[in-house]
Structure formats: C-alpha cells, structure tokens
C-alpha cells in the first residue's frame, strides 16, 4: 500500500502552480499519470523518490514513513527502496553496460540477476559496450534493468519512452510490462502518450495544474465506456475535408496517417488538432473525441 499526500508550491515554465496530490495505490497496481507539461507529474515522482521534498504532507510505502512534514521525517533518497527511470536514461558514460549494472547492485548481491535481466531485454551481447555506443532504445533498456536491480518497493518511470521513435516505444512498452510482471511492485508511469496509457495500465491519474482531476480506468477517464471496439488507437486529427455528404478525417496515429469517414454530426465535434480514439466495431471504424 502506498499513500501519498503532498503539497508543494512550484514555479514551472507555465507559471507558478500549487501542487496538491492525495492518492493511494493498493496492491501491485500499474498506474499511469497523464497530464500536460508543467502539471507537476515529474515532481510527484521526485517527491516519492526523495529527490524533491514536499512543502508538507505524508509519504508512506508499505507501512514505512518516508516523509512526514509534521514529524520532520525525510528519509534520504539513498535509503528509499525505489527504482527510478529517467527520460534521458542517465547511464554513467565511464562504465560499460555491465559495470553500470554492477554499480547498481548492492554489495554482496548475486550477479545472476544481472544476467537474467540482460537476457530478458536481449542485451547480453552488448554488456561490455559503453553507453555511448548504444541506441536510445538500448540505453533505456539498460536504465530500466539497472533501476530494478535494487529490488524496489515501488517502480517510478518518468516519461521513459518519450525520446524514442514509435517502433522502439512499442517494443519497450512490452518489455516494461514484462519487467513489471517479473518484479510485481506498485508502478507509477508518467507519460503524455495516451496510447501508452490505454495499452499498459488499468488505472490512470490525470494531473492538471497540480491537482488530480480524474482517475480510474483509461477508457472511463478518456472515452465513453460504451465502446466495445475490437481495436482502438489514439491519434491526432491532421485534416478534415468534406466530400459530398461525408467528411474525410485524416488522423495521425503514431507515425501512420489514416483516413476515416465521419458524418456531418460527428465532424461538427472535431477539428484539426483534436485528440481522438479510433476504434473499429466489426467493420466500420468509429472515431470519438478525447479532449
């Protein structure tokens, strides 16, 4: 059980905000946090990790108090059993892949776990390379398993895939889920990619202006829950053109561009730039406004 109740005044690039979050994560849930930039997503993770101190509040993980402003408790980051994955990997350039992993392993721990995790992310062959010679996806894989070598009580990921191209993102989404299954610890995954939320988690928090405005299952939070689509993708509208009685909506989904037909009523709700879910019921794709 993870309890987070924290307040902090932040000055972001979008102006000052008062971050005030209060949530609990029960069991080993995989939670995603979604929100515009400057909403305080990263700060929430950093407060749990101990990299940033809240102005006031309480952070408790598995009955251990990590932060309590009333009692003056603030356990340093080194003493918190966390795994933190950064957006920009943060591998140590002076060490090889294996040395990066060995550095993370606590003293006297069995190196078998390193071999197991390297095999899990298909990097056994590259373990003696320096990070400078790896691709972005490979670097982030190393960072993921390096973080997990600490056998954490909570797994924190700060937009880990946002610097990668779509192909690599899709692969790493699967690998993150595999690693999550292997360690089974509560996980908080910050992202601004809706497809990641739909694919990876059953619970999403929407953080806007420092406050959690909505939470729940992704399809409840972002779409109407009456879609029983066989498949669905999240995309952005690039263009809407009228063709006789119908409208042709051009949508970018990841790196793909697709055209979907919409009726006049449907098209009235949409405009260029709108985020939408494209789902298909049997044969006819339906598009639905997201925000």
């Amino acid at each position: 059980m993870i309890k987070v109740r924290a307040k902090k005044h932040l000055v972001t690039s979008h102006g000052p905000i008062d971050l005030a979050v209060d949530f609990q994560i029960a069991g080993n849930e995989f939670v995603t946090v979604f929100g515009p930039s400057g909403a305080g997503k990263t700060t929430v993770l950093r407060m749990i990790a101990g990299l940033t101190a809240p102005d006031e509040g309480l952070i408790e993980v598995d009955g251990e108090v990590w932060f309590d402003s009333e009692k003056g408790i603030n356990i340093p980051v080194q003493k918190r059993a966390i795994s933190f994955v950064f957006q920009d990997y943060n591998l140590f350039p002076n060490m090889t892949v294996r040395q990066n992993l060995q550095y993370a392993l606590s003293v006297g721990a069995d190196e078998k776990l390193i071999d197991e995790l390297l095999a899990m992310v298909h990097l056994s062959e590259l373990q003696h390379r320096r990070p400078g010679l790896l691709s972005g996806g490979q670097k982030q894989r190393v960072a993921l398993i390096r973080a997990l070598l600490r056998k954490p009580k909570i797994f924190l990921l700060d937009e880990p895939l946002s610097a990668l191209d779509l192909d690599m993102r899709l692969k790493l989404q699967d690998e993150i889920v595999n690693l999550y299954e292997r360690f089974r610890v509560p996980t908080i995954f910050v992202t601004h990619d809706l497809s990641e939320i739909f694919k990876m988690s059953n619970c999403v928090f929407v953080l806007e202006g420092g406050i959690i405005t909505r939470s729940g299952r992704p399809d409840e939070v972002f779409g109407q829950d009456n879609i029983s689509g066989k498949f669905k993708f999240v995309g952005t509208i690039l263009d809407i053109t009228q063709d006789n009685f119908l409208y042709i909506v051009t949508i970018q989904i990841g790196q793909n561009i697709t055209k979907v037909v919409a009726t006049e009523d449907e098209a009235a709700e949409l405009k260029v730039g709108t985020r939408v879910v494209v789902s298909a019921k049997a044969f006819n794709p339906i598009i639905m406004r997201l925000s």
């Binding site: 990299l51 920009d88 140590f92 550095y103 973080a147």
Partner: peptide, 15 residues
C-alpha cells in the same frame, strides 16, 4: 556536470 547523473546515482542508493 549533469546533475541528473548524480541523482541517478543517488536513486541507486549510492552515497
């Protein structure tokens, strides 16, 4: 020196 590398080391439990 990138501060994020120092933070990464701290999150790995290093003094």
């Amino acid at each position: 020196f990138p501060h994020s590398l120092i933070e990464a080391s701290y999150t790995l439990g290093k003094s």
